[in-house]
Design a protein around this nucleic acid. Structure first.
Lengths: 338, 338
DNA sequence: AACGAAATCGGAATCGATTGCATGATTAAA
DNA sequence: TTTAATCATGCAATCGATTCCGATTTCGTT
């Protein structure tokens, strides 16, 4: 079978490749008659232009990189679905990378993207990311970047987040009002943007309700679930064990459930729990989990909408350095006391 | 800032682009001295070859397409993690596409991949896929394809699956031994390879234990969860409601839990349930869900290993037309009666 | 000193699609 | 009938990296 490229089409039609190209691109210079002939054959042979030849000439790849720290995660999966929904309509393709929360992997991935492989990047940084030198390279190369959720404050671009401070505040307030005296905040990292904001809400809520804050109310967890279960188990076995937990990451809520299983404690009687989570099955857990769920699909769509504007309209200005906030939704279920 | 390409490097070093290219590729024709100079500058300027120029010449994209029917799904997410783990080590990139279980989308995606954009495809077909004309195009174009889980029997290539027949049989047997009299099999489609096999196991188990099978024991569900909850609700409200369900897809198990909430029935007392599922939180559901979980990560790794062999070794033969089976693991929990 | 082989490197074509410029053909206007 | 204008198409360069082939230099050997 011969390679079906533009030269082959041209030969079959007894035309020059340039004419075929123009016909396919509906140029005004080509007669209707010729266009019809060309399009007919292209359709018959199921011809599609070689994307790499086009990319080489146009310096556009029609490809976008999506970088996330975790794939088995409802939030990120939904965001990607949102991004894909929009970009697909514009003929863009998605390269998806998982950093597994590791800075080294994040670094390596970004270095692969600096050479024109993608037209833009949409990312949520790893929990290990505190220095941002590897990100600044993108800025120097003028590669458009949008951050969502776990953003990078120092990087001047548009960022999409949820109202983390407010959600942290509201979740904490809720626990206090349910009678919790010894509150704990669980997180993956102290450097993460979302953790900082959610923790800030936690602290302010404590203060507003006349409670002291002490640093050991913040527990920084690990990557491995087993380690976290142990960590939380120790916490629950301690003298002044917490009676209320705000988990800033979905997987930590799961670890709490599993850790509690190993004790004689009961949720919510002995321990009230609320967690940031996009699980669609929060209400069939035992007990149903109170959640702060983020508008993941909307975030994905918003990111992609902005991106498509920038990429499809020429001379579109660089992304403004600003933060766009879409509110999360808090849903009280039995884990925090009905 | 000048574009950093091979010509720029050549000019800086007072060499020809061809020499620079050879030096970068560690050719024997280039002296050590020159190689050192070239590599030093390349490193300093953080030079990476333009991937599209290389692809155009080599007819290789170092890119693989992964096509799945659903992204918010633990099984598929784990498989992709497995694929990425292997392919990343070989410098390959992953384009990930979600068909949302729609045949039209699957068709469209495949048509985008026929022009050299990817070197191979790893996919699990949508539940609507019964005709396979759109897949056969890939075969004609000699584009390597590997199927996993939801395979396409008529397509001659290597396929990775789990022991669906056996799992279906074992799950059904378990329900029977727990005393279920009126069993029902829930599925997304009658055409899907996995559904057929799992159903076959269901039927044979019934027969082996002296139970009649009637076609209305098979319920074909919808895409929308709300519809499924209603469908299952009706089922549970009927005269001869089932007392045991084998759900062939994770999301259907979730729908069952939610449907049961609307009734006065109790799992497992009134209804025993076991489901194919890769949820990591099956044991914190209320009640904990008995699962048949597939070795997702292993499947992904196996697919990618085979693929990498084919793509990195020249003159590697086409994929054999065979099926490789990796067994699932059945875990009994309280939803099927302790 | 001279010759040949090996070691190094440069020139130019190539991959496939696009596009500025030139050319040829057709038609309308003078 | 001639000229100008419009229309339709072809030629050739380009994008960046690679590689075949040819050219030059270096070195060892007689």
């Amino acid at each position: 079978m011969p390679e079906i490229n533009i030269k082959y089409l041209a030969k079959q039609l007894n035309l020059a490749p340039s004419t075929v190209s123009r016909a396919l691109n509906d140029s005004y210079e080509i007669s209707e008659k010729t266009k019809v002939r060309v399009l007919a054959l292209a359709k018959e042979l199921n011809y599609h232009p070689n994307p790499y030849a086009r990319s080489l000439r146009d310096h556009k790849s029609y490809t976008i990189a999506v970088i996330i720290p975790e794939r088995i995660n409802n939030f990120f999966a939904q965001v990607i679905d949102g991004i894909e929904k929009v970009t697909r309509q514009h003929g863009y393709h998605l390269l998806v990378y998982n950093t597994h929360e590791e800075l080294d992997i994040e670094r390596k991935i970004l270095s692969f993207l600096l050479n024109g492989r993608v037209d833009a990047i949409v990312m949520s940084v790893s929990s290990q990311t505190s220095k941002i030198d590897h990100l600044l390279q993108l800025y120097q190369k003028k590669l458009p970047v949008i951050f969502f959720d776990r953003i990078c404050d120092e990087f001047p671009t548009t960022k999409f987040i949820t109202n983390d401070y407010q959600s942290g505040y509201d979740g904490t307030k809720h626990l206090i009002q349910k009678g919790c005296q010894r509150l704990v905040f669980l997180t993956l990292s102290k450097d993460l943007s979302i953790s900082k904001e959610r923790l800030r809400g936690f602290k302010v809520a404590l203060k507003d309700y006349g409670m002291e804050f002490s640093p050991n109310q913040v527990i920084v967890c690990m990557q491995e679930e087993d380690e976290n279960i142990k960590l939380i188990g120790d916490l629950l076995g301690s003298e002044d064990r917490p009676d209320g937990i705000l988990a800033s990451v979905e997987k930590l809520a799961v670890a709490i459930y599993k850790a509690v299983r190993n004790t004689s404690l009961k949720i919510p009687q002995d321990l009230k729990l609320i967690s940031f989570s996009n699980m669609k099955i929060a209400d069939i857990l035992d007990p149903p989990l109170s959640t702060i769920s983020q508008p993941a699909m909307e975030i994905g769509i918003a990111c992609a909408d902005l991106l498509m504007k920038k990429l499809t309209k020429k001379d579109h200005p660089e992304f403004e350095d600003r933060i766009i906030m879409i509110p999360s939704k808090i849903t009280i279920r039995r884990s925090s006391g009905e």
